[in-house]
């Protein structure tokens, strides 16, 4: 059926010009579309707001600036670790070795930060930690991508190996009393903002840009969504995976430096709980275990949510024995409300 060109426009639209009602309809439908497309992010923001409100009502100390800055400062470490973890999860992997990587690299270079050491020595130490982390991450990536080990096993074995090696190196030694310059990295303030928060924000900016605006970021999503399809569309899947695992460990090392500096000590058993914390934050933030799904906003929401809950429990004076269990329950609830895991009924 031939269409009359003269009638080929929707009613209410005259010669390309929209009347105000139509404009409003367009606007409302695009707002609706925005809500529909971002329902997951919005639901996370909503949950955060609820927790925020509950904490405000329950504890008058919560909204004090000092406490809020403290929440951000504590959240920033988990935020950094979760960002690295999220990268491996985006390529449908996992990295259980991030805590031990931190322990190993700090056992090797912790002495460079102790009192009496010069600034160049400190820089060598920092670079050393980052290099060791990157090397360990690359080995993880190589054994997952090229040898074909499941990520879980490869990084768990690596966790045991690096943890064992850091115990071997330490022989019970604790590096403590770092120089003031080094302590500034994790304990200092810039314009009233804690340094870890600034570092975490910078890292999120860089990773967010990488994931959304660079080809490498698109490759990560492609590999995570469908390895075969990515391969046939000309992506070097194995190389992408190796670089991703390297980045994950590198980011862990970066977080480790900040952690050390704030702790003002380094010992072989630090970071035992880091992988699980980071995985929890990423999972609550909607980073899919199957790969290819999730973004930095989710990571922020996940890490903030976990920290807020811990902070709230501290403010309310909840016994530390109970806290771990409550965190577990919050993780379960956090994932349960995530719509993307809902089962479709046929």
């Amino acid at each position: 059926m031939d269409k009359n060109p003269n009638t080929d426009f929707t009613p209410g639209e005259v010669a390309g010009q929209k009347i105000p009602l139509q404009k409003f309809k367009d606007l409302s439908s695009s707002v609706g579309k925005f809500f529909r497309e971002h329902i997951e992010e919005l639901s996370r923001v909503f949950v955060l707001l609820i927790i925020f409100l509950v904490l405000i009502i329950l504890s008058p100390n919560f909204v004090k600036v000092a406490n809020l800055l403290n929440v951000l400062r504590v959240a920033s470490l988990n935020l950094i670790l979760a960002t690295g973890m999220a990268l491996t999860m985006l390529v449908s992997g996992i990295d259980l070795s991030i805590g031990s990587v931190i322990a190993l690299s700090t056992m090797m270079f912790g002495q460079f930060f102790q009192e009496g050491r010069s600034i160049p020595e400190m820089v060598i130490g920092i670079v050393g930690i980052l290099v060791i982390s990157a090397v360990v991450g690359s080995i993880n990536g190589l054994s997952v991508a090229y040898v074909g080990l499941p990520a879980f096993i490869a990084t768990f074995a690596m966790d045991q190996i690096t943890r064992g090696y850091s115990y071997y190196l330490s022989k019970g030694i604790v590096f403590a009393r770092f120089t003031e310059v080094f302590q500034f990295i994790g304990g200092g303030y810039l314009f009233g903002i804690p340094m870890p928060v600034i570092f975490a924000a910078l890292l999120l900016l860089v990773v967010g840009f990488m994931l959304n605006k660079t080809t490498f970021g698109r490759r990560i999503y492609a590999v995570g969504s469908n390895k075969e399809a990515a391969k046939y569309s000309g992506i070097n899947v194995k190389q992408t995976m190796v670089i991703t695992y390297m980045l994950s460990a590198l980011i862990a090392g970066f977080g480790g430096i900040i952690y050390l500096s704030r702790l003002n000590a380094a010992e072989a058993n630090i970071g035992l709980d880091f992988p699980l914390q980071a995985i929890s934050a990423a999972a609550i933030g909607g980073i899919s275990f199957n790969g290819g799904k999730g973004n930095v906003f989710g990571i922020i929401a996940g890490a903030l949510l976990l920290t807020l809950v811990t902070n709230g429990m501290n403010l309310l004076g909840i016994d530390s024995d109970w806290q771990m269990g409550f965190t577990g329950l919050i993780i379960i609830i956090g994932v349960l409300v995530d719509r993307s895991y809902a089962k479709k009924k046929n």
Binding site: I279, S280, A283, N290, I331, I332, V335, D338, Y341, K343
Partner: peptide, 11 residues
């Protein structure tokens, strides 16, 4: 649900 066993059992 379709939640991976990893995260629920971790919690």
């Amino acid at each position: 649900t379709k939640i991976p066993a990893f995260i629920i059992t971790l919690a």
